[in-house]
Amino acid sequence: MDVQWYPGQMAKAKRLLRENLKLVDAVIEVLDARIPHSSKNPDIRDLLARRPVVGVLTRLDLADPSATAEWVKKLHSDYFAVTAVNANSGDGVKKLLQLLKGLPQRRKHGQRPIRLIVVGIPNVGKSSLINRLTKRSAAATGDKPGITKGKQWVRVNEGLEILDTPGMLWPKITSERQAFGLATAGAVKDEILDPVQMGVELVGFMQNEYAQRFAERYKLEQAEGDPRHILNEIGRRRGCLVKGGEVDLEAAARLVVKDFREGRLGRITLEKAGESYDEDEVLPDDHR
């Protein structure tokens, strides 16, 4: 598996962060509630250590509510404060604004608004969150990793200003599980994983964690069995066929992944707060 996907514009994101941290009082790190562990950026932890960091779980409407609650509890030890929001509906935004009002301001900046920087890996909803906080379309939004470019100050209210920055992610993904979560959630380009492999892994996950709703979605008599065979059956039922009536597994895989990303499989979280992520299988050097 080749995961050497690092886009050119991401290479300078870390340098920009160093420069921008000099301008702000605190940091909002945006995490995808479906993959809270994998969407944390370990590269920036040391850089952020000198500023209070608020962790914000987004994609709340797509994530399992009980799993999100567990992650908020677990992440409290890593942040100044943690909360979860739905940037589309506005759920949780009022609570976030209250948390931000309580942030300490550096003394030398006197009475000016508290200034924040928003950081996070691509496509976790940074721009959507800013748009919701500022109540206007302040930053470019979209479905593709890396759509927010450059930087801009945006006003939240009289007491808060936000500097939006491009998302950041390390150039080498270090475990199979991390690669699966990031690719399936759409945080990295689809090309880093074989689409059939991604589809088979997602089917296997759904069999283990959300079997009933998965069977209901695709009208399967049962969700048990070899994930590849199940994916093949889904492809047959959904008309993902090529000449001769053979199932197009890649088309079937893309269909299942698309259903996950758009919430058609229900509210799903790919990572559990109670699991250990310290012993993930490390990818060989030639696959990073």
Rank of each mutant, 00 (worst) to 15 (best):
V196L: 12
L193G: 00
S175E: 11
R217P: 03
F214K: 02
F180W: 13
V200T: 14
D190G: 09
Q207V: 03
P195Q: 09
A185R: 00
M206C: 07
S175G: 11
K189I: 05
D190W: 04
F180K: 04
M206L: 15
A185T: 01
V196Y: 08
V196R: 11
A183M: 09
E216L: 11
M168Q: 08
L182F: 07
V203E: 03
N208G: 13
G181E: 03
Q207Y: 10
D190K: 10
V196D: 06
T184C: 12
A179R: 02
G181W: 01
F214L: 04
F214N: 00
L202A: 05
M168E: 01
V200L: 09
T184S: 12
L169R: 13
A187E: 06
L182P: 04
F205L: 10
F205K: 04
W170Q: 15
M206A: 06
Q207A: 07
V200E: 10
S175M: 12
S175H: 12
R217Y: 00
T174Q: 15
A185N: 02
D194E: 11
T184L: 10
G204S: 10
G186T: 06
I173E: 06
V200M: 08
K189A: 11
K189R: 15
W170F: 12
G186C: 09
E209N: 12
G186K: 08
I192P: 04
V203K: 00
F214T: 03
D190I: 02
A215K: 04
V188K: 04
K172G: 10
E191N: 06
L202K: 03
G199D: 08
V203W: 00
A183H: 02
Q212W: 09
Q197C: 06
K172T: 13
V200D: 08
E176Y: 12
L193N: 04
E191C: 02
L182V: 05
V196N: 08
D190P: 01
